[in-house]
């Protein structure tokens, strides 16, 4: 029980990783301690920076997150939604289709 996991082309040692991360955090804290401590609670320093403007009220809704990603991939997502009809007949069609493809593959290319 050393934590050392040997993989096909190397190894993974979580405890060594933790030690490195802990060292990095300690180093970051040391560097931080040399910084300028002028932070004051209850001042404008706590207001989020929004290009010099007042930050808008409210939150971005979950549905609007990654808007750019979804817009860029719109065609793919539209196609994906179209596949998921929610109709149980379609679920069975997919099952039958997989069976047919697998059967063809095994019959044509699947020798013992």
């Amino acid at each position: 029980m050393t934590g050392l996991l040997v993989t096909s082309s190397g190894y993974w040692h979580p405890l060594a990783w933790l030690a490195v991360m802990a060292s990095a955090v300690i180093l970051a804290l040391i560097i931080r301690s040399f910084g300028n401590n002028r932070f004051r609670k209850g001042t404008d320093q706590q207001v989020p920076f929004y290009s010099g403007n007042r930050a808008p009220e409210g939150r971005i809704k979950s549905s609007n997150l990654y808007w750019g990603f979804f817009t860029a991939m719109e065609k793919y997502f539209r196609w994906l939604r179209r596949l998921h009809t929610g109709i149980v007949n379609d679920y069975v069609y997919w099952f039958v289709l997989v069976m047919v493809i697998m059967l063809a593959a095994v019959m044509l290319g699947g020798g013992p």
Binding site: L83, H84, G86, Y91, W94, F95, V98, M102, V106, M107
Partner: peptide, 27 residues
Amino acid sequence: DRIALVLLFAAFALKCGAVPMHMWVSD
């Protein structure tokens, strides 16, 4: 035997929710 193999393979792949037989999973 080959037909049996395919039937079993497809049935258990359906049961574990492999795409494209996964739609029951989200429901």
